[in-house]
């Protein structure tokens, strides 16, 4: 498996570290939103533990730690290991605007 880093070009996958499915989104509940504890727990249970575990193309996080040290999002086929796209994850480099408090 070789991964085409959008910054470094194609490299062997030993330079990269895998995080996993990029789809789960951390649930956000406002404090005192009146949400029932069960619903909040369900949402977090789903986020932390449940996986689609796709057989086919999956969006996933890779970290190019052995190269430019950027977080990337790849679309990869889990059945064939074919990569369809590799792009920078949001916030890589200086592209992300300054956040309040930084």
């Amino acid at each position: 498996m070789r991964i085409a880093c959008p910054f470094c070009g194609e490299r062997e996958n030993g330079e990269f570290t895998y995080l996993g499915d990029a789809s789960p989104k951390r649930p956000t509940f406002a404090v005192d939103s009146g949400e029932s504890p069960e619903r909040v727990e369900d949402a977090f249970y789903d986020y932390v533990y449940l996986r689609d575990n796709v057989a086919g193309f999956m969006r996933e996080y890779w970290y190019h730690g052995g190269g430019c040290r950027s977080w990337l999002i790849a679309e990869r086929n889990t059945v064939t290991h074919e990569f369809r796209s590799v792009t920078a994850a949001p916030g890589v480099g200086a592209s992300k605007p300054v956040q309040a408090g930084e």
Binding site: Y18, T78, H81
Partner: peptide, 16 residues
């Protein structure tokens, strides 16, 4: 190998 896979085959870095 460390990444999700249904391929029944792995890659070289782990062999090493």
């Amino acid at each position: 190998d460390g990444y999700n896979s249904y391929a029944q085959r792995g890659n070289m870095p782990v062999v090493e």
